[in-house]
């Protein structure tokens, strides 16, 4: 019977842990959820068409997100264009070509360290290179490049992990019919890992959307009452890159600016901008989850 007492004691210990853990998790989540809900409720009255199509203003009720969301879209698109191809290429290179050499080890250590460096350092570094050395100014281009630098290590790391998850047997099968290394990469490694890579990239992008410190450091403005020039013109060659040279702001900076103002009206604006940011990141996360699900279903081993 002593055995049963002992067993009972052990079972009780376990139940305590389960109860405590569950209460902690659920209460933490509930607090966060209710706060998010509160933010949505605070911001809801401001979330209308006008909010998205107005420039910031000194009057809280007239102020809108137009220049901020356009700036976010431009900066993040540029960052994605620069960092995604480069990051995936670097990941493929490190995983498939540069394994087990001292060069790869150095690159690897640098990449993991860079992934941990605080964003504001990237801001300082970008200020030095893009603004001061390359004279790109405090522009959309500088913002995009800065965020691209910030995203790059993350994209490299997720690409490598995705590639490493592909079973060696599939690569061997391709080599065994006489494929070259590049053919193995292009025909097998990339298509099979694309789902996981995209998921990781989307997470990196959704983190980049929320960055403020490095962008303020390179000179993003908080009050912008105009849009960058249109990328399309009526004259030949019909595209213009003048928008790259435009000053910019982004949604979190705009939000930041509103939070720091006195008066509950601006707080409502901040809550509305926060709600927009949250919806944006939830949507991106949803896409990531969906992609992972879809592509994993097609590619199983």
């Amino acid at each position: 019977m002593q055995g049963r007492d002992n067993l009972l004691h052990r079972r009780r210990l376990e139940k305590v842990f389960v109860a405590v853990a569950l209460v902690l998790i659920v209460s933490a989540l509930l607090v966060l959820l209710s706060l998010t809900a509160e933010m949505f409720i605070d911001g809801l009255p401001r979330l209308n068409w006008k909010f998205f199509t107005s420039f910031p203003s000194r009057h809280a009720s007239d102020a809108g997100l137009l220049s901020a969301w356009v700036g976010t879209v431009l900066v993040i698109s540029l960052a994605a264009i620069f960092s995604i191809p480069l990051g995936i290429a670097a990941g493929v290179y490190l995983e498939e070509y540069g394994r087990d050499s001292w060069l790869a080890a150095i690159i690897e250590i640098n990449v993991t360290n860079l992934a941990a460096v605080p964003p504001i350092i990237y801001g300082l570094v970008a200020l030095g290179i893009f603004v001061q050395s390359w004279n790109l100014g405090e522009t959309v281009l500088t913002g995009g490049l800065t965020i691209a630098l910030l995203m790059l290590p993350t994209v490299v790391v997720v690409s490598r992990e995705a590639i490493r998850a592909i079973p060696a047997s599939l690569k061997e099968a391709a080599y065994a019919v006489g494929a070259s290394k590049w053919q193995v990469i292009w025909d097998h490694v990339l298509p099979y890992s694309l789902g996981s890579i995209l998921t990781g990239v989307i997470v990196a992008v959704s983190r980049a959307i929320g960055e403020t410190a490095p962008l303020i450091t390179v000179g993003a403005l908080t009050y912008i009452a105009f849009l960058p020039e249109s990328p399309f013109t009526s004259k030949f060659p019909y595209v213009s890159f003048a928008w790259l040279q435009a000053p910019f702001t982004v949604v979190p900076i705009q939000m930041f600016n509103w939070i720091s103002r006195a008066g509950t009206d601006f707080q409502a604006n901040a809550a509305a901008a926060g709600a927009v940011l949250v919806i944006l990141t939830l949507l991106m996360n949803g896409v990531a989850i969906y992609l992972r699900y879809r592509l994993r279903k097609a590619v199983q081993w």
Binding site: E38, M255, L277
Partner: peptide
């Protein structure tokens, strides 16, 4: 919820924390 929270921009946490 947790995987979504991991992707929320940090400034949102600031706003939530300010409220709570």
């Amino acid at each position: 919820n947790i995987s979504n929270l991991a992707g929320v921009p940090s400034i949102i946490y600031g706003l939530l924390a300010l409220g709570l």
